[in-house]
């Protein structure tokens, strides 16, 4: 009986931050990071849970095509779109999660993304740039001035952990990008547009710099 009451109470408890689990990579580390900074969070799997969440985090490791397929096959696509475009809830995409905000991704054959940011996820032209991919390890990220800021408290630049072979390419970089980093070229390290936020790096793997970013997002 007590368990039932608790279950009902939990049902009505507004959840601050929901981490979307769609079968793409390690969500445990994002969950651990939020727990550490004492953010009330939960892992969600369904459209209903997504729609009743105040803030969403979309992590992701793997291929663009598989990620979009998973989101659609699990019936989450419309719910995420509604939460972000109609309810205007805040969302943070991490790594592949951010790239899914683009119009399309070229990994595993051209795939349509959410299309919130007029951009494409394209492979680093490693040979042209003379670099090895994946780009892996800590790299310095330079922040661009934006009114609502994920990088509050971190100065003008900070080090973050990256693992990726694709990066977001956007013609209107000035409008959508909130920071950049160098790897053979200057690439988009994070995006920000209205209620939509994304980082190419992994804040959950970037020691205190990353925890500051997560805390800033959760305090928006």
């Amino acid at each position: 009986m007590e368990a039932q009451i608790r279950a009902v109470l939990n049902l009505f408890k507004p959840s601050m931050v929901s981490i979307i689990n769609y079968g793409m990579g390690n969500i445990r580390s994002v969950y651990n990071a939020l727990n550490f900074i004492k953010v009330d969070c939960r892992i969600v799997n369904s459209a209903a849970e997504i729609l009743e969440s105040e803030k969403l985090i979309l992590p992701g490791v793997g291929s663009f095509r598989m990620a979009m397929d998973n989101i659609k096959n699990r019936g989450l696509f419309d719910a995420i779109n509604e939460a972000v475009l109609i309810k205007k809830n805040y969302i943070l995409g991490i790594c592949l999660g951010m790239q899914l905000f683009a119009d399309e991704g070229e990994e595993d054959g051209l795939t349509k993304g959410f299309g919130w940011i007029p951009a494409a996820a394209k492979r680093f032209p490693a040979q042209v740039l003379g670099i090895k991919i994946p780009h892996i390890g800590f790299n310095r990220v330079y922040f661009q001035g934006t009114p609502v800021n994920l990088f509050k408290g971190l100065g003008e630049s900070a080090d973050f952990y990256f693992v990726h072979s694709y990066r977001m390419v956007c013609l209107e970089q000035e409008k959508y990008s909130s920071s950049w980093a160098n790897y053979g070229e200057r690439f988009i390290a994070s995006v920000q547009y209205k209620n939509i936020f994304g980082t190419q790096f992994h804040p959950e793997k970037s020691l205190s710099n990353g925890l500051v970013v997560l805390r800033n997002f959760c305090q928006l």
């Binding site: 390690n26 445990r28 580390s29 651990n32 990071a33 727990n35 550490f36 952990y161 693992v163 959950e204 793997k205 970037s206 020691l207 205190s208 990353g210 925890l211």
Partner: peptide, 27 residues
């Protein structure tokens, strides 16, 4: 891994793809 916010590499006795998934799922 609950209190580690950096990349973690782990190994020792990984002998199958199931082992590999288990270690990666553990963080």
């Amino acid at each position: 891994s609950k209190r580690c916010f950096m990349p973690i590499a782990a190994g020792g006795g990984i002998r199958s793809i199931e082992d590999a998934y288990m270690i990666l799922d553990a963080g």
